[in-house]
């Protein structure tokens, strides 16, 4: 009797050990497949069809027609260009400023928590609220805050929203404002994880604080910098709420009268829910997908090289 109980227990144990891992990952993979992976891949299938948003489950085969149409679609090209430009305008200063701020916060400091929370407050602000606040800051007339501040330096009022570059600058400012503090904390965390021995060695070699930062801190932070660059790149591909609400009720969905601050994600929304062409919207979404895959691939290559060089 004792024997059979032991056998039963060991059988139950073996079943538990083999089956339980799948039971633990199953809920995640089921939900992930249903609402993440499947829609992601199915977007590619939709992009090969003519689909009206007003009758979204009625699809007519169109082959690659939605893609060839993009070739001569200047709003698409403009949105692609804008996505890159706004991405660079926001990410480059953002990461440089964050690196410098992290260096300051890494010092022995009173009220360190206050500064960190103050820097992180924009992250708690939603895209919608931030975009509306900055729309107000960048008002065209001389009563707008940005224009009033420029006027103090003797610069006349700028028509932010209609301008080709000023509008991109304003949209990039929203991104810059929301994410700089977040990236600062990421860099700070990475800085505090740099082994002290590296600094000790550098100090013995007579390196100044500046040199230590450039020769020890920045190289040690390379993987983190790569990580934040990827996050920024993927973030640029998702840029939607900022231009949409910055443009207001009239021009938001077009990204301005000349699409001067239209982005790829915004164009997906415009094609899908203003022009009511779900298939064409899916083609643009699939282009974003390819760019994201390329970003991931390139960053994986860089990461592999970094690992080898360390």
């Amino acid at each position: 009797m004792g024997r059979s109980t032991a056998a039963r227990r060991s059988r139950r144990y073996r079943l538990d050990v083999t089956a339980a891992p799948y039971a633990l990952i199953a809920p995640f993979f089921l939900l992930f497949a249903a609402f993440g992976l499947f829609p992601l891949l199915y977007t590619g299938w939709v992009s090969l069809h003519t689909v009206s948003t007003l009758d979204p489950n009625h699809m007519t085969w169109r082959g690659v027609g939605n893609y060839t149409a993009l070739w001569s679609d200047h709003v698409f090209w403009q949105s692609l260009r804008n996505t890159f430009i706004i991405g660079l305008l926001s990410a480059v200063p953002q990461l440089l400023v964050a690196l410098e701020l992290a260096r300051l916060l890494d010092r022995r400091l009173r009220a360190g928590t206050f500064f960190r929370v103050a820097l992180l407050a924009p992250y708690a602000t939603s895209v919608a609220a931030a975009a509306l606040i900055f729309q107000f800051v960048f008002q065209q007339n001389s009563a707008g805050f940005a224009n009033w501040a420029l006027h103090l330096f003797g610069i006349g009022p700028v028509a932010w929203e209609p301008g080709t570059w000023t509008s991109k600058f304003a949209v990039a400012t929203i991104v810059f404002w929301r994410w700089t503090g977040y990236n600062t904390l990421i860099y700070l965390a990475a800085m505090q994880a740099v082994p002290t021995e590296l600094y000790e060695a550098a100090t013995l070699d007579g390196a100044s604080r500046r040199q230590q930062f450039r020769k020890v801190t920045v190289p040690a932070l390379r993987p983190t910098i790569l990580f934040t660059a990827i996050i920024s790149a993927i973030g640029s591909l998702q840029l939607f709420g900022e231009p949409y609400l910055f443009g207001g009720s009239g021009q938001g969905i077009n990204g301005g009268p000349d699409s001067q601050y239209s982005t790829l994600a915004l164009y997906v929304y415009r094609l899908g829910f203003s022009s009511e062409h779900l298939g064409r919207a899916a083609a643009v979404a699939w282009v974003i997908f390819f760019i994201a895959v390329a970003v991931a691939g390139v960053s994986a290559l860089i990461a592999a090289r970094l690992r080898r060089s360390v």
């Binding site: 609402f35 499947f38 997906v268 899908g272 997908f289």
Partner: peptide, 19 residues
């Protein structure tokens, strides 16, 4: 899939909620 923008899934999800 971590780096895939979740927004890419919205069009089929729209078809789903419409259905």
């Amino acid at each position: 899939t971590i780096a895939m923008p979740p927004q890419l899934s919205v069009l089929p999800l729209f078809q789903l909620i419409a259905a």
